[in-house]
Nucleic acid binder design. Structure first.
Lengths: 191, 191
DNA sequence: AGAAAAACCAAGCAAGCGCTAGATTTGATA
DNA sequence: TATCAAATCTAGCGCTTGCTTGGTTTTTCT
């Protein structure tokens, strides 16, 4: 029976689904489109997933996991608050703009999830936001940032997440450039 | 025949559609849901609109128009660059968070538009962004902001537009509070 | 090699989708 | 009061949707 397994095949399928969901949105992507891109028939999809929405859940889970992992690595060994902020921003934009799939879906398709799936994912999102909260808190404590910490976090993530709406990968600016520019905008690189 | 008219009735219907599109997204909203909310049968909808996508187009047009109008009023008579930035931010958040319908749809549902509708709306979007571009340019010229103007504009609008994802109207912070906080974050209110 | 499990296909169902056509009602105007 | 257009309804068409079922192929493991 179809379990919520973690087989290698399933991972591949989730990755393909991520691409389609990113390109055209969850609702506009049919199970037949998914199956075509996967090289199987639409019915076979339901051997790996209980329903379509579960595919979305898996994609988002994927996106959150990789975002968390990359963020953790980026912060590892970095101690100076401003550097930590910059490292986290770079990690965020990197997952968002270079592997433009799962992480983007994770940000923009929450609405289509079942309540059950939502409960699974909210924990990961909170964990990710806690990471930001901590880094920003360090900046405020160190006196390099001023203001309400949750609010700064939300503005920052908003500015970063919105980049997927306009970023041109073929342009001259790299994700790292953007991260640096944002840090400058909020006065982190002035001193 | 069904024309792209501007009758009063049509305006009402567009307003109702805006609410539904905002609440559940365009793709998840069926013509029957729309008709129900409008108090008519689904078939009658197509006397006012040629197809479903045209309703979305009208909603977005509505959102952009009111945003443009409110922004223009907000800037009227204000000359000091920092005040102009703040006024524009307040106007933006006001349309976004108090009348949480058309403007939000205008931001998040572009993907479902036909190419034809897109061409109609892109002009309005550009006009709105030009407003921001100008105000930010004034700030940079006045020396109260530093950096690449288009980039600042995009980060700012990103931070503002993302508020719809988390803002709680029943909370303690008003849209104006948020605008002020953002201005402080990017160093506009320090001197 | 042989058995068990996993992956897949062929065929199609029931429901819901956007949309249409033709008749009917409503409301303004002459 | 007669006329005509706008607005709505009734009824349903043709298609696509997510998903199911029952059987076949492929892979894995002993």
């Amino acid at each position: 029976m179809t379990q919520t397994n973690n087989s290698k095949r399933r991972k591949e399928l989730v990755s393909i689904a991520a691409r389609l969901f990113f390109e055209q949105g969850y609702e506009r992507t049919t199970v037949r489109m998914l199956a075509d891109a996967m090289g199987i028939k639409s019915g076979s999809l339901f051997h790996h997933f209980n329903d379509k929405q579960e595919i979305l859940c898996a994609v988002i889970q994927d996106g959150m996991e990789s975002a968390l992992e990359i963020a953790g690595e980026a912060l590892d060994g970095v101690t100076e608050p401003r550097e930590r902020f910059l490292a986290l921003s770079k990690a965020h934009l990197s997952t968002l703009l270079t592997d433009r799939n799962a992480h983007v879906v994770a940000l923009y398709e929450w609405r289509s999830l079942s309540e059950e799936s939502l409960n699974v994912l909210i924990g990961m999102r909170d964990e990710y936001e806690a990471l930001w909260q901590q880094v920003i808190d360090e900046c405020v404590t160190a006196g390099v940032l001023k203001g309400d910490v949750p609010l700064i976090r939300r503005f920052t993530l908003g500015a970063l997440n919105w980049t997927v709406q306009w970023y041109d990968a073929s342009g001259e600016k790299s994700p790292d450039d953007l991260a640096k520019a944002l840090a400058e905008l909020i006065g982190l690189q002035r001193n």
